[in-house]
Write a protein that binds this DNA or RNA. Structure first.
Lengths: 341, 341
DNA sequence: CTGAAAGCGCTTACAG
DNA sequence: CTGAAAGCGCTTACAG
């Protein structure tokens, strides 16, 4: 390795090499203020020759305003977060907002989120987008006076922070009603705990509620462990109670259920119907998953649009919006009458 | 919006509030040097009361060493890059390396990559991981003396930079030989241009070569457009020449081919076998895709392990490694003899 | 154990 | 049009 830790040239080096002052170098590089064509030329050449890259740390420290916005992202092994990351990056780019991201890992005792948060704040970002539930609103509150903060993706649990989120209640309702309409009256619902995943918990409880209101018998699979997709238990309940459908809170769980049922010799939807929620997987259509597609693109666009306004000072009260997804009927749901007679 | 742009407290505010000097505040906060329990207590309380968050810009500027490492990532709408991002973030976390990321978008005229690169360098990161082919080695070269740089994921085209990459030649060979072994002798290969995707181009040309060497007639679908999966043209060639299989350079293209064939009433693998490359999709097994799984986790682990050594100064010559993937036989490939008689 | 002082690399009024 | 000077918020020897 030839890494020498060589000192990088500073603005002073450039100034000397160009035979001007640092002030002039700074002006030329920023293209503001006045400077002669001669200075312009010499500075550029010196920069070129020395391979000078301005130290942004110093720039931002010295200048009154920072420009980049920070993104705190949940460990994207969850496909919904991965998709959100992609779209947020794209939207930031379209809105001309330089974006730097840090990943916050879910399995932390609790300290790491704060470290990440502080690091972002320490970088004096112009605004902060928080796309993880692992950083609590309480942790964020103290800073909302000093920079614009926007939660993205997660339903707001608190009314003091800006938030653009998925309308999980609506999403879950959409698909539960679809199942009801198909005629199912005995359904297994996979329900992760709120601590495991708040959005999934909201989805699950909503499904249970809607199904119940629709006159459906509901059997609940409580999931408390990250590595448990709930599929085994769900298949057990199907067998025990003769349920005609399984509702999962994500497409991943839905697929796990499909695997488990397949392994037990049950066919989908011949013997059992299954549903998920996400709609983000590439091969969705080929598998025929029945799900609700989260409006990831719209959410990302809206989030960056709002952030753009916030940092430009066009504040307009607290912003809290929820975006609805779209039902995707697939081939994993059929009418129970067709095969249970 | 109640964003006031309120000035954040500085170390001086803390010092005054605690009745000590800034030096003492700094020592306490870093836990180095000597300070009384009394000072310790007062500083901590002041920090608490004021909600002080140290300005990292200033810290890193003032202190000789930076700690965070930068990741330049390709726009992750490509699933392979999304997976790589997830794993790199995880590996960095496991190696205790604070990581900040910036996304570089592929469709740029060419200027944006440099902006992103300069911004990362400007943040004076301790090391740089480059996971995109859009930043060229030539652009990186000038800086390799001043900080450790490591390319990740992309085959090295140049021998001056550290690189951990996928062994695309081996991967493509694995799957091409599998198809040959299944008995196919007339195959369509989808081949993106090198400018569209260098790794895919390497895969495609390798497949063509291996198939040819195996006595196979090969029909090539040249792909030049980002939005073209090559499926339509591939299906055309299948029809025209009676090819028994289609090889795609990614799983996404493979799925596009499956859709197209399905739309034309052809069954997979009944009428035509298809293969892909990636192996990263969640529902892979359910779809029965035949592919090669990229060793994303291993690559990410190795990359961060190497980076960790590099920034700690344990330089050990130029590092260039290639990691092999693993063949995943699916249900999209069958012997042509079984259905072509 | 503690504080005054210099310095990190830049920006920005302010005089020329 | 240009440069000297002060300052951004921290760290780090160096004297006490």
């Amino acid at each position: 390795m030839t890494f020498t830790g060589a000192a990088r040239p500073t603005m002073l080096d450039v100034a000397i090499s160009a035979g001007v002052s640092r002030s002039t170098v700074s002006r030329v590089l920023q293209g503001r203020g006045r400077f002669s064509r001669e200075s312009h030329f010499r500075v550029l050449r010196a920069v070129q020759e020395l391979g000078f890259v301005p130290n942004i740390l110093a720039s931002e420290l010295a200048s009154p305003s920072s420009s980049v916005i920070g993104l705190l992202l949940r460990d994207a092994s969850n496909p919904a977060y991965a998709a959100l990351f992609v779209e947020l990056a794209r939207a930031a780019h379209e809105h001309q907002l330089p974006l730097i991201s840090m990943t916050v890992h879910h399995d932390e005792g609790g300290g790491q989120q704060i470290v990440a948060l502080r690091r972002m704040l320490g970088m004096r970002v112009a605004g902060l987008v928080v796309a993880t539930g692992d950083v609590t609103s309480e942790q964020l509150e103290p800073f909302r006076a000093s920079l614009p903060i926007l939660r993205a993706g997660r339903p707001a649990t608190n009314s003091l922070l800006n938030a653009i989120s998925y309308d999980e209640v609506n999403n879950a309702t959409l698909i539960a009603e679809y199942l009801l309409a198909a005629g199912h009256r005995r359904v297994v619902v996979i329900l992760p705990t709120a601590t495991l995943s708040y959005p999934e918990h909201v989805r699950g409880t909503t499904m249970i509620e809607v199904l119940g209101a629709g006159g459906c018998a509901v059997h609940v699979v409580a999931v408390t462990d990250t590595n448990d997709q709930g599929a085994t238990h769900a298949a057990d309940l199907v067998a025990r109670y003769g349920a005609t459908a399984v509702m999962a809170t994500t497409d991943r769980r839905q697929m796990a259920v499909m695997r488990e049922l397949g392994a037990r010799g049950l066919s989908v939807p011949g013997d059992v119907s299954v549903t998920g929620l996400d709609g983000l997987m590439a091969g969705l259509d080929l598998l025929g998953l029945t799900t609700v597609r989260l409006p990831v693109e719209a959410l990302a666009q809206r989030a960056m649009s709002v952030m753009s306004q916030l940092i430009s000072g066009a504040g307009s009260g607290l912003i809290q919006e929820k975006l609805c997804g779209q039902l995707i009927p697939g081939s994993t749901v059929a009418s129970p009458a067709a095969h249970r007679s």
